[in-house]
Design a protein around this nucleic acid. Structure first.
Lengths: 216, 216
DNA sequence: CGAAAAATGATCCAGCGGGTTCAATCTAGC
DNA sequence: GCTAGATTGAACCCGCTGGATCATTTTTCG
């Protein structure tokens, strides 16, 4: 609410020149929250990271909780958008479906294991119950849906056999992220790109064994 | 170290009768940490939960960090042991392998979605980098290995076709936990048991489609 | 029963971090 | 150039928490 009015005011009144401050603050907030966690992050540090005075932070976003909310929401929306762009690559029916799945899987996995994505998951997992509204816009729901759309089309065109595209999409994502999560030890270990490629290959292979055109 | 000496001293000298305190403290610590997170949990509250005075806590476990370490480690070992017991059910080669996989999957999922297991994952995910040694004993590695052992045997006996049992085990677990994780919204939503059963059925189905004896 | 060890509760301390206040300064737009 | 609003830095208040101390009581065990 407060932020809505602030944004509206900002848009039609003054802060054309100095408005970057808000963005800088949100970026810095996510950086610091990602590094320290919600409880350990102090507003002073965020202000320093954004090269801004502490009262300025409270001027733009009234609360530490608000700050967290907006910073995380922004980062999450960005991440979701990127993931959707990747899935869009399955729109053109490919001659080599398995290769296409492997490629898309590899790209998704690279993003999934990226610093921002991992930090985002950590923060959401830790603070989910304290910020319930974040989960509604944030979840992997939209990604699964988009993928299910692709699988449905590919099934209609005979490239795939998914009786329940939504379930298949869920499982494809699980085959990708599950092993990656297990091996990265809660994001502690960095996984080299060859490993990600291998995981994507394995996932695509198993998926095609189960849902490929010549599978029962 | 500090705790080792304390434990050793405890074992051969005095606290036979009142030693339950330590266990009570560790249990209470896990409860409070699970509810509040590491940073937000205060030792005072843990002491109250354990019905013990604060100095007693510091007497048994010198540090808040130590307290967390031991409480989490204990809970994690318990959880791992339970999971291993479940997987052991695949030892006797079943006539209906798919049903057996579904059953084991269902049991694993029930545990995976249990309060303690979820809390454990939250805590580990959030504080992993601050307690690196916790991950080594804690990870899903042993569970995957045990499952891989079963799959290897089942492949030798012709009930399954897993060229790489370890990879298959990884993927089976992923097929189980991935969708559960996605649907539970970071543990926010409680999943009814029918849903868990359905997820296990779907996972077993896909797994058998890919690795069943009559699959390529 | 008596001594040693442990538990207790109360109190205290120090540091930290969220949030506010205020006077001074800077910037934008008329 | 002038006014209004935003920014700044610094100081300040306040509550909380980790951790220590200590005298008193309870429990254990020889």
């Amino acid at each position: 609410m407060t932020e809505a009015t602030s944004t509206a005011a900002s848009r039609h009144r003054a802060p054309r020149g100095r408005i970057d401050k808000r963005q800088a603050i949100l970026d810095a907030a996510f950086t610091v929250f990602a590094r320290e966690g919600y409880a350990n992050a102090c507003v002073k540090e965020i202000a320093a990271e954004a090269r801004v005075a502490k009262p300025t932070v409270y001027n733009h976003l009234n609360d530490k909780a608000n700050l967290f909310h907006h910073a995380v929401k922004l980062a999450a929306e960005h991440e979701v958008a990127e993931n959707l762009r990747i899935v869009e690559r399955l729109a053109r029916p490919a001659d080599d479906l398995r290769g296409a799945l492997e490629d898309v899987g590899h790209r998704l996995l690279r993003r999934y294991c990226g610093d921002r994505s991992r930090a985002l998951r950590r923060l959401l997992c830790a603070e989910a119950h304290r910020f319930p509204d974040l989960l509604e816009t944030t979840g992997t729901g939209r990604l699964t849906e988009a993928l299910a759309d692709r699988f449905a089309r590919l099934t209609l065109s005979g490239h795939l056999r998914t009786p329940d595209p939504a379930e298949a999409a869920e499982q494809f994502l699980a085959l990708l992220t599950g092993p990656a999560e297990a091996r990265s030890r809660f994001g502690t270990r960095e996984l080299p790109d060859e490993v990600l490629r291998a995981l994507a290959r394995a996932a695509a292979g198993t998926f095609c064994s189960a849902f490929g055109p010549r599978a029962g």
